[in-house]
């Protein structure tokens, strides 16, 4: 094992899969000459050349269109969208084409395409550059959507995604790229499945269901809560669609309490979808209403003081847990 950044883990996955299969190529805005907006693709152009590491003009729609078309034509594209905010410009092709073709055309076309993009706020980038929009896509049958939170998963899941036959949205987070974690040594092959969550911390009092950067905030909250005698179990979903509901329900049967925590907005989003599934399939096991921690219901403000209020934080998780978990005697 070594300790590397999330960014480097992603780059290794891309490079290894490109070496393994010469039909894999990567394209996007400023990925070659500039080295990638977040430096994920740095050095790939030097190794694989212009044919397989392609800078495109500023045109999200044709990036995704080309990815879809070339996948139908037999290639295995990795399309990088500079940020998730710009996926909206290509959302028609993602939703109306990539997600539909296999089903609508009687199971014939495969679209083995990975769309990589970072989402999220926290760097004062304002309303149009700070969004976590995964729930828009997670709503759509015909897509897979994953959101790894650690370098290990980033690498293992990206390798799985590149080998997968379906269109996959691979959502990174702008504030995760420099996060470090343990990853097997180079040459030690491994992959991580695209439909399995993982228990990051065991606990008996409450289950925190979370993903992406919010997972790290939940782990911090769990440490704080432990000091007050509350043991939280933290589930990192890793994959949003399909969701590993078995893992969530298994934990619920132990803790009987759930808080769902996410960075995105509350209404009609991923977290509400998860909560509804838990109510539908685990109602009898619940001892309290499901808590829900989210970003505030506003476009992201630029001003630092307001942005901090808008983002969900450790204290919000702690408060949501305390609202549904009986306080141990002597606490408070």
């Amino acid at each position: 094992m070594r300790t590397i950044t999330y960014r480097d883990a992603l780059r290794e996955a891309i490079a290894e899969e490109m070496r393994r299969n010469d039909r894999v190529y990567i394209m996007g805005e400023d990925i070659a000459g500039y080295g990638g907006t977040y430096a994920v693709t740095k050095g790939l152009f030097e190794e694989f050349g212009e044919k397989r590491v392609k800078d495109t003009p500023l045109a999200e729609e044709i990036i995704i269109g080309t990815a879809i078309g070339s996948a139908i034509g037999g290639l295995r594209p990795i399309a990088e969208l500079m940020t998730m905010n710009f996926s909206l410009l290509a959302s028609d092709l993602i939703i109306n084409s990539a997600a539909k073709f296999r089903y609508m055309f009687g199971g014939q076309p495969s679209i083995p395409m990975v769309i990589r993009m970072p989402g999220g706020g926290g760097a004062q980038r304002g309303a149009q550059h700070s969004q976590m929009l995964e729930s828009m896509f997670a709503h759509i049958p015909g897509l897979k959507l994953v959101m790894p939170a650690t370098p290990y998963d980033a690498k293992g899941m990206l390798k799985s995604a590149i080998r997968d036959e379906d269109p996959i949205l691979f959502v990174e987070h702008e504030l995760l790229y420099s996060v470090k974690g343990e990853v097997p040594d180079e040459g030690e092959e491994y992959t991580v499945p695209l439909n399995r969550g993982i228990v990051r911390r065991e606990g008996k009092d409450v289950t925190l269901v979370t993903f992406s950067r919010m997972m790290h905030i939940c782990l911090q909250a769990a440490e704080e809560l432990a000091k007050e005698g509350i043991e939280a179990e933290v589930i990192d979903l890793r994959s949003i669609r399909p969701i590993d509901l078995d893992l969530v329900l298994e934990s619920l049967r132990k803790t009987n309490r759930v808080v769902v925590a996410e960075e995105g907005w509350k209404y009609y989003g991923t977290g509400q979808g998860i909560a509804a599934l838990i109510y539908e399939h685990g109602f009898d096991w619940l001892d309290a209403p499901i808590g829900h921690v989210t970003g505030k219901d506003v476009p992201m403000p630029y001003s630092k003081s307001l942005e901090q209020l808008a983002l969900p934080a450790r204290n919000d998780v702690i408060a949501a847990v305390k609202a549904i978990v009986p306080q141990p005697a002597g606490a408070r």
């Binding site: 004062q124 309303a127 630092k304 307001l306």
Partner: peptide
Amino acid sequence: FGKATGCSKGRGGSMH
């Protein structure tokens, strides 16, 4: 500076 006296009340920033 993200201040209340900004032309977008500090909610926009440099880009807005």
